[in-house]
Design a protein around this nucleic acid. Structure first.
Length: 592
RNA sequence: GGGAUCGUAGCUCAGCUGGUUAGAGCGCCUGCCUGUCACGCAGGAGGUCGCGAGUUCGAGUCUCGUCGGUCCCGCCA
């Protein structure tokens, strides 16, 4: 039964050899006087030939086979009479001598072919079949390579691999926790880690100096095409370093991965962009730099204009007016512009002003509100040429640029720019994030990254007077507009940490209850330290060339968090609940 | 929490302003076929139109609810 070769290894170089393969029946073509079928394993497919006249018993056995039956085939490798150059093993075939049926299969629910476009709901329910498709198998080979490169790279660089707990303490900041009830301590809960953040910092205090871990993280938030509730991080932390050291290590790692897996040379060092520049040029804190289409700020140009929408925006605290130049889009129809307006509204735009630069002059609903000088200055600053369409947003700073950032991507999609750059890669750092942001919901400052992020030295003093302007020593690595890694230099001085907690509205008692163990650790000789964590799934996505994270996760959840194959989550036995001291609220009881 | 969109044969889909017996391609079954590889030819089987109400003489089609998929906003330190 044991194989001598994988199917994909049956090549011209072993013609004449006696071989044995294991695999699944991929396709069956019975021509009457000659029978062909193909067998598939993880390496590819190979054609088997049976000649009924010469081997009637074997032919009879072959005719019993069906799609996805599991077989062992023994035979001799022959050169094909009529080769098929479209498959790697297409110049040879195995002339069967023995066929062993190891297991039958029900009729497959769908074809095990890459071309088969099958409803994802079915694919997830029958994931064991879906995962047989060559394209998915390829994705997991890539993912495996990524694991191996990661272990080697960090080991070679002196990092020590750890495991941190999965049953941890719930912390209130950040994402919603997944909770695990304790049986021994009824009424108390563990939380699954949103990330091993505090543990890795404590390992730094313990003196391990360089830590890494490939680890699962859990966040109970709504999902997206690039977000799963459980996901894998390459988690890294280093002592006695500055931000430059972390960026250098991380970009060398990234370059290594792209070289080994994609054979792409990444030019180092990577471009670094401040958060402010990313926002004002690209309207995003994770800009896709495979194409340009930069945003132009025109707040100062139109601040005295008659247009009431601009007036209102200027009067906002931190109000901004800016535009994106959609090159060669002046031909857009009224309907297309209406669609763009609707699109902008999703991001909180109240409306969308536009200027068309037609061959016969300017066309714009707001032209009448702008002076000749204002219009000319706008055209100059945005490098507007005949045929261009300027899309203008006016709102509070972050809203205004976010709207334009979304439009920038949408215009790139509509005009085919995204399609053109789909095989390119762009890498860049975004640094100097704001340390805090004001939460209207909670009426307090919250940490933008996490509460242990160090402010920039020069901004520590102003923290107390102008917290909104304080910048963090934080860094995100962006590839093709995806945030694939993020990290920071941490606070290692208890006094600074207390200042931050104070700003976040925690009393010393609160802080002690929530993060006391970290605060304790910081008082016992914490070294300066910092780190970064890569989203392994997103890296795998980019390497595999897919925009769907479920294509690189073996058993993913749907966008509502269900696992369609096993049915999780499910109700549990009342006995299990009572052991945990848990009673369901009346309203949730029949929710299965 | 909100928005958009989808759910018809095993799979992918068509099915118009409501109207007789719901169709196609692929797959499947039976037979034929000595170089197929999206094999070919002939014949055949296969439907709770996601589910539940409602409107109507009559619902795959209209309305409401519900379940599920996908994408997005909010959310994701």
């Amino acid at each position: 039964m044991k194989r001598t070769h994988y199917c994909g290894e049956i090549k011209e170089s072993i013609i004449g050899n006696n071989v044995r393969i294991n695999g699944w029946i991929d396709d069956f073509r019975d021509k009457g006087g000659v029978i062909f079928f193909t067998v598939r394993d993880r390496s590819g497919i190979v054609q088997i030939l049976v000649l009924p006249e010469e081997q009637p018993a074997l032919a009879e056995k072959a005719r019993e086979l069906g799609s996805e039956y599991v077989v062992t085939i023994t035979g001799v490798v022959h050169k094909r009479e009529s080769p098929n150059p479209n498959i790697p093993t297409g110049y040879v075939e195995i002339v069967a001598e023995e066929i062993i049926l190891l297991n039958k299969s029900e009729l497959p629910i769908f074809h095990i072919h890459d071309e088969a476009n099958v409803n994802e709901e079915l694919r997830l329910k029958y994931r064991f079949l879906d995962l047989r498709r060559p394209s998915l198998q390829k994705n997991f080979m890539i993912r495996n390579k990524l694991y191996q490169i990661t272990h080697k790279y960090f080991s070679d660089n002196g990092f020590i691999e750890f495991e941190t707990p999965v049953l941890t303490k719930s912390t209130p900041e950040g994402a919603r926790d997944y909770l695990v009830p304790s049986r021994i301590h009824k009424g108390k809960f563990y939380a699954l880690p949103q990330s091993p953040q505090l543990y890795k910092q404590i390992l730094m205090v313990s003196g391990f100096d360089r830590y890494m871990q490939i680890t699962k993280c859990f966040r109970d938030e709504d999902l997206r095409a690039d977000r799963q509730p459980e996901f894998t991080q390459i988690d890294v932390e280093m002592s006695f370093v500055e931000q430059d050291d972390i960026l250098e290590l991380a970009e060398n790692f990234t370059a290594q991965v792209w070289k080994d897996i994609k054979n792409v040379q990444v030019n180092l060092p990577l471009q670094r962009m401040t958060w402010f520049d990313a926002m004002t040029k690209y309207g995003s804190d994770k800009p896709d730099l495979r194409y340009s289409m930069e945003i132009t700020t025109i707040t100062d140009i139109v601040k005295n204009s008659e247009f009431v929408v601009f007036k209102e925006a200027v009067n906002l605290k931190n109000g901004s007016i800016a535009l994106v130049n959609a090159k060669n889009c002046a031909s857009f129809s009224r309907k297309q512009i209406d669609d763009l307006t609707e699109y902008a509204k999703k991001y909180g735009a109240k409306g969308l002003a536009w200027i068309k630069i037609n061959a016969d002059g300017i066309q714009s609903p707001i032209a009448k509100f702008l002076s000749e000088t204002e219009m000319q200055t706008i055209l100059e600053h945005s490098n507007a040429e005949t045929g261009d369409l300027l899309l203008i947003a006016a709102a509070e700073f972050e809203r205004c640029y976010t709207i334009l950032g979304a439009l920038r991507i949408e215009v790139a999609r509509i005009t085919g720019i995204l399609e053109k750059v789909k095989n390119d890669f762009s890498f860049n750092w975004v640094i100097d994030f704001p340390l805090l942001e004001y939460s209207e919901e909670e009426s307090r400052w919250v940490a933008r990254h996490h509460p242990f992020t160090s402010p920039k030295k020069e901004d520590v003093e102003s923290l107390k007077t102008d917290p909104q302007f304080a910048r963090a020593i934080a860094h995100d690595l962006v590839i093709n507009g995806y945030e694939v890694a993020g990290g920071s230099i941490r606070i290692h001085q208890n006094s600074v940490q207390q200042t931050i907690f104070n700003l976040l509205g925690f009393t010393p008692e609160d802080a002690q209850i929530k993060f006391g163990f970290l605060l304790d650790a910081l008082q016992f000789g914490a070294p300066p330290h910092g780190g970064i964590a890569f989203g392994l799934d997103r890296l795998a996505m980019l390497l595999a060339g897919t925009d769907n994270i479920r294509d690189v996760v073996a058993f993913p959840k749907t966008s509502s968090g269900l696992s369609l194959m096993d049915g999780a989550p499910t109700p549990v036995d009342s006995k299990q609940l009572s052991e945990l001291g848990i009673a369901l609220a009346e309203s949730t009881k029949n929710n299965d």
